[in-house]
Design a protein around this nucleic acid. Structure first.
Length: 259
DNA sequence: ATGCCGTGGAAACCACGA
């Protein structure tokens, strides 16, 4: 089973690129972030015509997350994180597909930092860690995938020294990610490629993609009950070079079938 | 160190992203 995450930066503006990538790579499950579309403007028919079922939690202008499934039945579990009913951002949706619980997240950017946006990022991160811990306690196969807006280590940025005061790389952000991993999660890309420079995002300007001046901020975390099924992982970097591309590239894992 | 680009929505500019 191939599971991918893709920050599309506008589902409707990105639809031709998304459909082409689905057609060419045929992932089984896709987690999308930054739909930038209200609930009723999600292009469900085009997604269905491409062979995918979809559940989504839209929001006007910003945020928005979705899970697509190629044929496999999908059972939605929740469409927001617990513990803050006043949080109006659409940043989390969760479903079970083929016995795997899939959490699709769009963690807040947090800039400028310090400030209220950074406070919101850290508060959201704390809620996410609590939820992640409760999922681990269930001892079931879980993958938590999406745009974490976290540069985990210096290796994950083209010029890490330029990011030390940024919300994606500040000590508080990296510490929160390390604490999350410390619960028992496996960073799938780093499991397959322990030492390589791998990016999932390249800025639109200054030819960042052409210079490979990127960041690794989209992550796929595996619970212990599914970690042994990881057979491959990668980034579909070529998609970033297409016309009208998102600034992120699709990032994916391949899991063997359950025994 | 930076929003130089790109998207969406409102309004012919602005907020936001990383």
């Amino acid at each position: 089973m191939k599971i991918a995450t893709y920050n599309v930066n506008g589902i409707n503006g990105r639809l031709p690129v998304l459909l082409r990538w689905l057609e060419e790579t045929q992932p089984d499950v896709v987690c999308l972030q930054e739909l930038k579309a209200p609930q009723e403007k999600f292009p469900e028919q085009a997604i269905n015509d491409a062979g995918y079922l979809a559940i989504w939690h839209g929001q006007k202008s910003w945020n928005g997350v979705a899970i697509l499934s190629k044929g496999h039945e999908m059972k939605e579990v929740r469409r927001e994180l617990p513990r803050d009913p006043d949080d109006a951002h659409s940043r989390y949706i969760e479903a079970i597909v083929k016995g795997v619980l899939i959490g699709c997240l769009y963690l807040p950017n947090g800039n400028p930092a310090p400030g209220p946006k950074f406070d919101y990022k850290l508060a959201w991160f704390e809620r996410f860690k609590l939820h992640a811990a409760s999922l681990l306690a269930e001892k079931i196969p879980v993958v938590l995938v999406g745009d974490y807006n976290v540069i985990p280590t210096e290796r994950d940025a083209y010029k890490p020294e330029r990011w030390v005061k940024d919300a994606l790389f500040r000590p508080e952000t990296r510490a929160a990610f390390e604490e999350l991993i410390g619960q028992g999660w496996t960073d799938a890309i780093r499991k397959i490629y322990p030492d390589e420079v791998i990016y999932t995002f390249w800025d639109y300007f200054r030819d960042a993609y052409g210079r490979n001046a990127g960041l690794r901020i989209d992550h796929l975390l595996l619970s212990p009950q599914i970690e042994s099924r990881l057979v491959n992982a990668g980034v579909d970097k070529f998609v970033r070079g297409w016309e009208k591309s998102s600034d992120h590239a699709p990032t994916w894992i391949e899991l063997s079938d359950a025994e």
